[in-house]
Design a protein around this nucleic acid. Structure first.
Lengths: 218, 218
DNA sequence: TAGATTGTTAATCGATTAACAATC
DNA sequence: TAGATTGTTAATCGATTAACAATC
């Protein structure tokens, strides 16, 4: 029996597909909330989001019965529930490694937008960058300061913005220092080598190539 | 009968799932090529990539028979074929709009990494930024210079790195000026309003939230 | 030729959609 | 109560895996 991905409330396995839709639900419900709408039916939401009402009800019921027959869903309550499912109330501490163009941009983004991750510190192995500031954070040394920061703050997540080879070399060291999850912007396929690590890949070049493919379609 | 997504060679519909795996095949085959390996079987490749051999053969056969019974696949030839499928030989002209932190980083990335997209020009609506340089490109004015550049170069793709509201306001104008595809970093759900547009979303905050969810699992 | 491995068809599995009884 | 809409089961659809004949 599979024990992973079980939900506390229902003991159902929640599929990757459902999980990946949650942030989008959260985003739409946030906007709908701001628009002043108090309640919404699965049909109304489905029309706004381009999904089927059936799918929305199936998705939500993986986590519990948040609606009310004959009424629909309370927008504010549903938004809050999905936020809780996504751990938005309890941010994980994160560190970012590799302050190049992309790393700097991601760092600035994460400093201003908490999405369940609290960026505590940024690192680079280039001594030229040590001490410089990115937003409100100071670039610290990799690997020396990194060890210190891990002892002090115990971050659980590393945002990897270094080249492929550096990433590959670095991961065992990150794990030794208590990192359990990786937001991976590098082209090193971390998840293959470390199946127990939680990994989320962001491959911008894959998105570019996928769009390039779609441009020729039809 | 569905006529979209048909492949020239085989007239089969190619599913989104298959398309999204192509850039990863391309990446792995590029690396394998560099390692000096000349031929590879679907089983060997499946072990390297964490897939089944069956899936690899099914995926590739959406586009044609690139292998040889008893031999496997020629690494260099297969890499080239997937590159052609992904249009890497014929880049689309692209422009980037919104040179904030993320826009600047993406611009630098696209300037150095052609992935079937040739970044021609970058734009911002903030007069303070006009004339400044990002890598080898000069930031030009939105909307005035944009119209000129579109007339001159006819770019087909816009990389949208502006806030949600600006994005929503901007898209009809982009379409008027000949844009057919969007690499969308904004939180505006372009595809919902313009189903004929080719859209690829890159939502970093969704990835952060998905990782946050995974961190609590098990 | 014999062995290996593809291309492709068939079987299985999982995800989406439809239907409807439960219930607010 | 009657109407609306959920939660949930059943039906459908599509994607993955397995099997094997074709063939290099």
């Amino acid at each position: 029996m599979q024990t992973e991905n079980l939900n506390e409330k229902t003991d159902k396995v929640v599929s990757e597909r459902v999980i990946r839709r949650l942030p989008r639900y959260y985003r739409f419900l946030g906007d709908i909330m701001l628009s002043g709408m108090e309640r919404i039916s699965s049909r109304e939401l489905s029309e706004m989001m381009g999904l089927t009402a059936s799918q929305i009800r199936q998705d939500l019921n993986c986590f519990g019965g948040f609606g009310q027959q004959g009424y629909g869903y309370n927008v504010r309550a549903l938004h809050r529930e999905i936020g809780l499912i996504l751990g938005q109330d309890a941010p994980e501490k994160a560190v970012l490694i590799g302050v190049g163009n992309l790393g700097a941009a991601v760092s600035m983004y994460m400093e201003t937008h908490t999405r369940g991750m609290e960026l505590c510190s940024v690192f680079d192995s280039d001594p030229q960058k040590w001490g410089k500031r990115i937003g409100g954070l100071t670039i610290r040394s990799m690997p020396d300061d990194f060890v210190k920061v891990c002892k002090e703050l115990s971050p659980s997540v590393a945002v990897l913005c270094v080249p492929k080879d550096a990433a590959k070399q670095m991961v065992p060291f990150l794990i030794e220092n208590g990192i359990r999850g990786i937001l991976n912007f590098s082209h090193y396929d971390v998840a293959l080598d470390y199946p127990k690590l939680k990994v989320e890949n962001v491959h911008i070049s894959d998105s570019i190539m996928t769009l390039r493919y779609k441009m020729s379609e039809k």
